[in-house]
Amino acid sequence: MPLIKLFLDICFFRKGPQDTPASNLLLGLAISAYLIVGFVLLGLEGDWAGAVVEAIAEGAMVFGFLFVVLYLGKKLPRLRQTATALYGCDALISATAIPLLALLLMAPEAKPVYIFLTFLLLWHLAVVGHILRHALAIPFFYGVALAFGYVVISYQVMMALFDRAT
C-alpha cells in the first residue's frame, strides 16, 4: 500500500513531511490509525474505557504541540503535512510495540524485550526529530531535542491527568 510505504520511507529517513500530500482525508486516516494503535497499547492492561480517553488526550496534545512549534517557527502552513507524517509514523512505530508489551504483561522478566522497546523509543525520537527538522527547517539535533522535550512534558501531563502509577 503506497500510504504505508510513504510512512515507512519517512521512518527510515528517506522522505520527509513535505512528501506527504496536504490532504484532510489522509490526515484523518493517520489520526485514526494513531488513535487505534494508542487505544490498543493503553488498553493492554485491561482498562479499555480509560484507554479511549487517554488516546484522545495524547492525540490532542500532539496536535497542540505541532501547532505551537509550527506557529512559533512561522511555518503554520505546513501543519497538515507535518501532522499527517507524525501521526502516521507514530502509528507504525507504536504498532510494532503492541506484541512486545503484550509479551511483557505475560513475562515481565523478558529482559531482551526491554532492550527492543528502548530501541523503538529512540527510533521514534529520531523520526520525530527528522519530521520536525524538515517542517521547521532546523538542524536534526534541534528537532530531536524538541521531540525529547515534548515526550518529557507530555509524560508529566498524562501522569497528572490520568494518575497512572509510574
Rank of each mutant, 00 (worst) to 15 (best):
I4V: 15
L6G: 01
F7C: 00
L8G: 10
I10P: 00
C11E: 04
F12C: 10
R14A: 11
G16A: 05
G16V: 05
G16D: 10
P17M: 14
Q18N: 14
P21S: 05
P21H: 05
L25V: 14
L25H: 09
L27I: 05
I31E: 03
S32V: 10
A33I: 03
I36Y: 01
G38R: 08
G38N: 14
F39P: 03
D47C: 04
D47R: 07
A49E: 09
G50R: 04
A51H: 12
A51F: 11
A55M: 02
A55T: 03
A55K: 02
I56A: 14
I56G: 09
A57D: 02
G59V: 04
M61C: 05
V62N: 08
V62A: 11
F63D: 01
G64P: 12
F65W: 10
L66S: 01
F67C: 11
V69R: 06
L70T: 02
Y71F: 15
Y71T: 13
R80Q: 14
T82N: 04
A83I: 09
L86E: 06
L86I: 00
G88W: 08
C89N: 11
C89I: 07
D90R: 15
A91R: 10
L92V: 11
L92C: 07
I93H: 03
I93D: 00
S94C: 07
P99T: 10
P99Y: 08
L101H: 15
L101D: 13
L103H: 10
L104V: 05
L105Y: 14
L105K: 15
M106A: 13
A107Y: 15
P108Y: 07
A110T: 13
Y114W: 12
Y114T: 01
F116G: 01
F116K: 09
T118V: 07
T118H: 03
F119N: 03
L120S: 12
L122D: 02
A126S: 12
V127Y: 01
G129Q: 04
L132G: 09
L132M: 07
R133N: 09
A135Y: 06
A137N: 14
I138K: 09
